[in-house]
């Protein structure tokens, strides 16, 4: 199962690769990273239809915000699941994400147990 993480912090890539080391090694999941909304759309648009099943995106990023990316993805690739990851867990962001069709909302620091079980559940569905 291909998952795309979108965050402007580059070290997020190493962190998630290490956290999901076993799942990656076993071939259960495959991770890709983008560091802006624009880059994420490019990655998703590379293949038609895209093989990505799930996108996790930060909200506060320079340029296109995560919420704008969410709208874009939901318009262009409605079959892809999107969850938000944000340091700002205010109700305004939460409501907007949920109303735009987000599957979940994670706050930073990320609770990896919750994230893992969310991903495991999705893997099972596949």
């Amino acid at each position: 199962m291909k998952i795309l993480f979108v965050d402007d912090e580059r070290d997020v890539e190493d962190l998630f690769r290490q956290k999901f080391r076993k799942e990656i090694k076993s071939g259960e999941i495959e991770l890709a990273f983008a560091f802006s909304g624009k880059e994420a759309l490019n990655v998703l648009g590379d293949e038609n239809p895209p093989k990505f099943v799930y996108v996790f995106s930060d909200i506060n990023m320079p340029g296109m915000s995560g919420l704008e990316l969410l709208d874009e993805i939901k318009t262009r690739f409605p079959e892809i699941q999107v969850s938000m990851i944000s340091a700002y867990g205010d109700s305004e962001n939460y409501d907007r994400a949920m109303n735009s069709g987000a599957r979940g909302f994670f706050t930073k620091p990320v609770d990896f147990e919750r994230l893992k079980s969310e991903i495991a559940e999705m893997v099972k569905k596949q």
Binding site: E9, L15, Q18, A87, K108, P109, V110
Partner: peptide, 11 residues
Amino acid sequence: IKNPLNFVNNF
């Protein structure tokens, strides 16, 4: 501050 601290904790 939270961002780097999260990395410190996680790594």
